[in-house]
């Protein structure tokens, strides 16, 4: 009989850059899984669970938030160096978040001056950017905040040395599984078809439009969707403004020719 194998728990770190900490909260608030998580991984750094981090080598680092200061950029690069796998979680880390909604509109310096005037910052502000603008990202878990089921499914895959399952479907998929009447059929605004799904169609379940908070669905037919919304009487400027609220850096490439 073989000796019972020593279980090697993956070393993980959970980090937040600029964001609302909502994704980290999802982890700590998922009561069904939090004990399982603490039992099956070795958490080296997670500010919500312990104030005594050990910043060494990691098997997996989870990063929430956008890179919005030079200090965060150094921190991110350090995390990347130490982690075998880096997972970006949440809209801010994936797209830049609402703080990136004006990306590319004039210069960043002008916008900083407009908002803050002439002040000395503790660390140099950077235009809010997704994590993969600076470092390589191995896996993405979208959300605003992330969905506990999807995140823990990804974590469980990583614990088992396997890769998280992507979900490249629009919000409409779950919206129909939830048997909602489509808002578009009533000529109402909804960004479901061009938005990454996985939120369990949280807004349409309440008769509210999808506002795109999970970021772009790369397969989205942006051109036709814009035309459809315009046929409802919306202006293109209005659609662009709304889709940029959460679209950050990532949305720009999808709407650049529209």
């Amino acid at each position: 009989m073989a000796n019972e194998q020593q279980i090697i728990k993956p070393k993980i770190g959970i980090y937040g850059l600029t964001g609302c900490a909502g994704d980290q909260l999802v982890i700590i608030h998922t009561e069904d899984e939090i004990l399982n998580l603490f039992n099956s991984v070795d958490i080296k750094s997670f500010v919500m669970a312990s104030s005594n981090p050990e910043e060494g080598e990691l098997d997996v680092a989870f990063v929430e938030g956008s890179v919005s200061t030079e200090e965060e950029l150094h921190h991110l690069k350090d995390i990347r160096k130490r982690a075998k796998i880096l997972v970006a979680m949440g809209n801010c880390a994936l797209c830049g978040g609402p703080q990136a909604m004006y990306t590319g509109d004039g210069t960043f310096d002008t916008r900083v001056k407009q908002v803050y005037g002439d002040v000395d910052f503790l660390t140099k502000p950077l235009e809010g950017a997704p994590v993969d603008a600076y470092v390589e990202v191995d896996y993405y878990v979208p959300g605003c905040p992330v969905d506990a089921k999807q995140l823990f499914a990804a974590i469980a895959r990583l614990i088992h040395g396997s890769s998280p399952e992507p979900y490249p479907h629009p919000v409409c998929h779950e919206c129909k599984l939830n048997e909602n009447k489509c808002l578009l059929l009533d000529k109402k605004f909804c960004l479901g078809p061009v938005t990454a799904g996985g939120c369990n169609s949280a807004c349409p379940n309440h008769g509210l439009p999808c506002v795109g908070c999970w970021g772009p669905n790369p397969d989205g037919n942006f051109k036709e969707h814009f035309e459809l919304l315009q046929s409802f009487g919306m202006t293109k400027e209005d659609i662009v403004r709304r889709i940029r609220n959460f679209g950050g850096h990532k949305i720009l490439e999808y709407i650049k020719d529209l």
């Binding site: 899984e33 399982n36 998580l37 039992n39 099956s40 823990f152 499914a153 974590i155 469980a156 895959r157 614990i159 088992h160 396997s162 399952e165 479907h169 629009p170 409409c172 998929h173 129909k176 599984l177 489509c182 479901g192 078809p193 061009v194 397969d219 989205g220 037919n221 036709e224 969707h225 459809l228």
Partner: peptide
């Protein structure tokens, strides 16, 4: 729009996907 709604509402569409979801252990 590749929204997939036609498939969900069509009574004879029958395709499904299978995903292995590991426990957190």
């Amino acid at each position: 729009l590749s929204c997939g709604s036609c498939t969900m509402v069509c009574p004879t569409c029958n395709c499904y996907t299978l995903t292995d979801v590991f426990d957190v252990t």
